[in-house]
Design a protein around this nucleic acid. Structure first.
Lengths: 217, 217
DNA sequence: AAGTGGTCTAGACCACTAG
DNA sequence: TAGTGGTCTAGACCACTTT
């Protein structure tokens, strides 16, 4: 275990035990460096992860305080559908439903299956001016989701999570039980302010959830 | 603008322009330091934020590569209900609905209002052994949500996001339009493996969404 | 005005791991 | 096993912001 890890452990102990209660100032970086017998840079490394996690708040001149736990950050990673499914030990399946080009936009509707049951309906729009190679892509075997990841990167991505009543396509393709809503993931990506793609991912509410965890021990 | 910011800008430019295409190795840290005429530490600082955002992947001995954009991280911050409401320029309201103690657990049901309309139903359980002072807390004016933040910190928090059909309490208190589902935030917190509190937050789907953004320009 | 955290340097050695 | 990123040091100066 590295020095900064040991120090971080000791600092979290002081916070959790309320030796340093919420709202209190903690010693300056120089003092901590002297106390632990390390360089200031090492202290800063130990502090930085605690700041990132929302345990501490730093302000110039005012020093470092134990943060009120109100605005903690949770990191969310939404990975490839196929990987989501296969990670759980399930079988992944894919079916292309519709595919058309209109007004310089390629629009694709497809279904991702888990153990042969509908898991995610992907309603995708791709800008052909933003991603010219998308005009010739074959989505009969590979989903747009997966194909796009092999392409150029994006500089901005906006994600919205919502609950919703199913729309017509959802009802048609997701085999929803009666009164079952859908969980929506809406995402739009840009490269330097040029719009690339937009997607609406809908999931049967009972078989989809997003989980996050923040831990520090 | 600091040196590491200028460098980061130039690096993102090379990635976005595909001068360094997805999957390719980029120069070693020492080479970059020489190229930009800075210390290696400064290069590392510039790289670290790009690694955190998922733009780059580092491996010992193998070097640094431009990451496939598949597993990008989005940071989600769910703040105080009251702040969520007031930030949007709305009026916040609060109403306590039920409050009981059973088996060492205090259970509170309360409603958060936005412009006098139901916004979030909070169904909360607090461990009195984990947080003894919760036995005497007055939740008639301050919500458990808000009260808990003034208390001790937690070391682990688990959050789940879900869509769902409303349960009985949701239907009773959220004034849901016909066929409207709810967006659920389920959260549980621990301090060193001691269970502290669990909450079910339900929102009318049409008036609630979670938004995230990852940007790098 | 002064003290805090923020940036930066120029080194050194370590630890992991791909070839 | 050699080369990469990871850790660490002991300094220096800067910039913000509270008092």
């Amino acid at each position: 275990m590295h020095k900064y890890e040991k120090i971080r452990l000791e600092l979290t102990r002081r916070i959790n035990s309320q030796a340093w209660p919420v709202g209190a100032s903690i010693p300056h970086e120089d003092e901590l460096a002297a106390e632990f017998g390390v360089a200031r840079g090492t202290i800063r490394q130990a502090l930085s992860s605690l700041v990132d996690a929302g345990y501490l708040e730093k302000k110039r001149r005012a020093g470092t305080r134990v943060a009120y736990p109100k605005d903690h950050a949770s990191t969310l990673r939404i990975s490839l559908v196929r990987e989501q499914v296969e990670q759980g030990g399930h079988t992944y399946g894919y079916r292309l439903l519709k595919d058309s080009i209109e007004d310089g936009i390629r629009r694709v509707l497809c279904l991702h299956l888990r153990d042969d049951a509908p898991y995610q309906l992907e309603d995708r729009e791709i800008s052909l001016s933003g991603i010219p190679s998308a005009a010739a892509a074959d989505f009969s075997q590979i989903s747009p989701n997966e194909w796009l990841l092999q392409q150029q990167p994006y500089s901005r991505v906006q994600t919205t999570l919502q609950a919703s009543a199913p729309n017509r396509n959802d009802r048609k393709h997701l085999e929803l039980p009666r009164d079952e809503p859908v969980f929506l993931v809406l995402r739009e990506t840009f490269l330097e302010e040029v719009w690339l793609t937009r997607v609406r991912l809908s999931h049967p509410a009972s078989s989809y959830s997003v989980q996050m965890e923040r831990a520090f021990d």
